[in-house]
């Protein structure tokens, strides 16, 4: 579909997607409750920091960090890989391919349409963080807010594109759920989800800076808690959006190849 027509259909796609997100609110709530990992790690780090701070992190800083992690995960996550796997297996992907609009846009719209519902969870958690830790739990200046919003968008884009790429692998592998699990493990370990990346040894930190994972969670959280000056933040944001571009190109290539294969072998 031409880009103009896609954009014209977008408001309706978003509206219907939002209605779906509302219909699945109970599922979402359960999912939110099941993302307890930051809290599990929070109590561990609080115990570690009970007597003396770890690096620049005292107990309160850990509370702020992990609550921010919890909130950012709600905003930046995507389920597209599971959905695509399911649709390829059920053959319902055919219905999407028959429509004169790329399924990639449809998946993106469905994902973005869930944002308001996710904010309903993220905002109270952020408020709680401010109550517990004080105003340093959120950005202090307008530019920090702007950078934070950009970083959340970039983090979401990386999650979404990686999900679609891995989801599209199911065209070739039959099921790519195990690949997604491997990605998830790397994401948990490398993204700053379980510990602040800056507590890692320098060598590992350099490696992680070159991988996409920390830009999904770590960077938005660091920008939320004001860990970086604007110059450093700008460099990291640049790296994040470079990953968005790379993954974007990869996604389109893998998807096209996958659909071609789907048409050759049938669903």
């Amino acid at each position: 579909m031409s880009f103009r027509n896609t954009m014209r259909a977008m408001p309706t796609l978003l509206k219907v997607g939002f209605a779906e997100a509302v219909a699945y609110r109970a599922e979402m709530l359960i999912w939110v409750l099941s993302t307890t990992m930051p809290l599990v790690n929070m109590v561990l780090w609080m115990a570690v920091a009970r007597n003396a701070p770890v690096g620049r992190f005292g107990q309160a800083d850990f509370v702020g960090y992990f609550l921010a992690t919890f909130a950012v995960r709600q905003l930046t996550s995507s389920w597209a890989a599971w959905l695509i796997n399911w649709e390829v297996r059920q053959g319902t992907l055919s219905m999407r391919l028959l429509r004169p609009i790329s399924p990639l846009w449809a998946y993106a719209a469905e994902n973005i349409a869930g944002f308001p519902m996710r904010l309903i969870v993220a905002i109270p958690v952020t408020v709680l963080a401010v109550v517990l830790v004080g105003s340093k739990a959120v950005p202090q200046h307008a530019w920090q807010w702007a950078f934070f919003v950009l970083a959340v968008l970039g983090g979401w884009a990386i999650s979404f594109l990686a999900n679609v790429t891995i989801g599209a692998l199911s065209f070739f592998l039959g099921s790519s759920q195990k690949v997604m699990e491997v990605w998830l493990v790397l994401y948990f370990v490398c993204s700053g989800y379980m510990y602040p990346v800056e507590l890692l040894p320098a060598g590992l930190r350099t490696l992680i800076n070159w991988l996409p994972f920390r830009y999904q969670i770590g960077l938005p959280v660091e920008l939320m808690t004001g860990a970086h000056g604007w110059r450093e933040a700008l460099v990291l944001l640049g790296a994040q959006w470079a990953w968005v571009a790379v993954l974007g190109a990869l996604t389109v290539a893998v998807w096209k190849q996958g659909v071609r294969r789907f048409a050759a072998f049938g669903g």
Binding site: R8, A9, T12, K15, V16, A19, E20, A23
Partner: peptide
């Protein structure tokens, strides 16, 4: 049809998609 929404929503969606 979208399983958990009324058919009217799918109609609306198709209207947009098919312009």
């Amino acid at each position: 049809l979208l399983w958990d929404l009324p058919p009217a929503e799918t109609f609306e969606l198709n209207r947009a998609i098919y312009d």
